[in-house]
Design a protein around this nucleic acid. Structure first.
Length: 156
DNA sequence: GCCAACGTTGGC
DNA sequence: GCCAACGTTGGC
């Protein structure tokens, strides 16, 4: 079992959108970065833990807990000419972009980026590193434990 | 809107 | 394969 942090812009797809989605599950569409794709295609397994992160918004941070809910499969938006994620260089025969489905476990309070930076225990998190732009980053078991226990404590 | 950081593209 | 130019991300 592995752990991940996945960024989404809430204006496009928020934790509430995930909660409203059929089965509280969604294909993680729109990733157009090879490293992030490779994590989904090659490294993720059904049941892996996901920290759902809101980026490019007023208060960026972790907004909920989710889990990987499918094996990798092609991102349909790459074939859709009307989609902003359309990729003319991809084809049905050899799809360039793959994704996994992500299912909500629970919405949490917003654990802001600012607050994350204030905890020395998780100061090495990839998402906190200077210049980090990757939309999917690995989370260590220790980081996962710290963050989920922090959120569980606050939920009581 | 700014801009640091970094990924991608394409000429050579 | 190098690397300059360009595009994107994302916090601020």
């Amino acid at each position: 079992m592995s752990y991940w942090l996945m960024k989404s812009e809430p204006d496009e797809f928020s934790i509430d959108d995930l909660a409203r989605a059929p089965g509280k599950s969604t294909p993680w569409f729109g990733v157009r970065n090879y490293q992030a794709r490779n994590y989904m295609r090659d490294a993720m397994r059904v049941g892996d833990g996901v920290l759902f992160y809101h980026s490019s918004c007023a208060v960026p941070g972790i907004a909920g807990i989710a889990k990987v809910a499918s094996a990798a499969h092609p991102d349909e938006t790459q074939f859709d000419r009307k989609s902003p994620y359309f990729d003319p260089k991809s084809s049905r025969d050899s799809p360039r972009w793959e994704l996994v489905d992500v299912k909500l476990v629970k919405k949490t309070r917003l654990l802001s980026l600012e607050e994350l930076r204030g905890h020395p225990d998780i100061s090495d998190m990839v998402v906190l590193r200077r210049g980090n732009r990757l939309s999917i980053t690995p989370v260590t078991p220790g980081e996962w434990k710290f963050v989920t226990e922090l959120l569980a404590r606050d939920a009581r």
